[in-house]
């Protein structure tokens, strides 16, 4: 069994540590998705505003995230903002801040798209059968808007999960960092350690993202007609 590098994965607490790292990654993704979604819904409502200035600011905010890579944003907040304000922020906090703000921008765009695609006559027919303002939202508009934005929102979540891999670059002990530590520790004994460890992390990400993207595609196909 000496030659099988794959055993490096099953030695001691390796799997457990990798799992802990994965939880850190998943935690950052999860919290950011939640915060980003809430901010994004507000953002989306703002973007339906008739005011040109509000629209411009929202659009600018979105483009800023679309043009500058997320890794650059992580650096800006991790090195730049902390430096300018002379405070210390842990990598985890920085990651949540950046991903939430980015999520808000993209989510806002999805919400806006969903709201704008709601047919006007739905509102009128809702009023015609005597629904109150809240009733109109509760029974007619929100269920329809949710249908239209859910596939996009799930897709965004997949992207955010994938992007959390970058937190290793700002010193977070995530699944990749743990993997690197394991490789370093065992590389002399098991030269192929990096193949197995990175291979496993690759599969772990796939296991999280694949069902999400399948779900998104399925919902999209189901609700299209």
């Amino acid at each position: 069994m000496q030659n099988l590098g794959i055993n490096v994965l099953f030695e001691g607490t390796t799997l457990q540590r990798l799992f802990e790292g994965l939880m850190m990654t998943a935690g950052i993704a999860f919290i950011s998705i939640i915060i980003g979604s809430f901010l994004g819904i507000g953002m989306g409502l703002l973007r339906t505003s008739k005011s040109g200035i509000v629209q411009f600011i929202c659009r600018f905010y979105l483009e800023v995230f679309r043009i500058i890579p997320i890794l650059v944003w992580l650096f800006i907040v991790y090195f730049g903002v902390t430096n300018a304000l002379d405070i210390h922020l842990d990598g985890e906090i920085v990651a949540v801040i950046v991903f939430s703000l980015w999520g808000a921008a993209e989510m806002g765009d999805i919400v806006r798209g969903a709201l704008e695609s709601l047919p006007k006559h739905q509102i009128e027919s809702g009023k015609a059968i005597g629904l109150s303002f809240w009733g109109l939202y509760r029974y007619v508009l929100i269920p329809q808007a949710v249908r239209r934005m859910l596939p996009g929102a799930i897709n965004l979540s997949t992207r955010m999960v994938k992007t959390t891999s970058l937190v290793v670059m700002i010193g977070v002990i995530d699944v990749i960092k743990v993997g690197q530590q394991i490789i370093e520790r065992s590389v002399i004994k098991v030269p192929t350690a990096s193949f197995w460890v990175y291979g496993l992390i690759f599969i772990l990400y796939f296991i999280i993202c694949y069902p999400l993207s399948k779900l998104s595609k399925k919902l999209e196909a189901k609700w299209e007609n």
Partner: peptide, 23 residues
């Protein structure tokens, strides 16, 4: 397509660069 779309570039790179060199 599924493998490529559902995994992060960073880990793809690490696998290519550090993983494959070792085999």
């Amino acid at each position: 397509v599924e493998l490529s779309r559902n995994t992060p570039l960073l880990i793809q790179l690490f696998f290519l660069y550090f993983g494959l060199t070792k085999i």
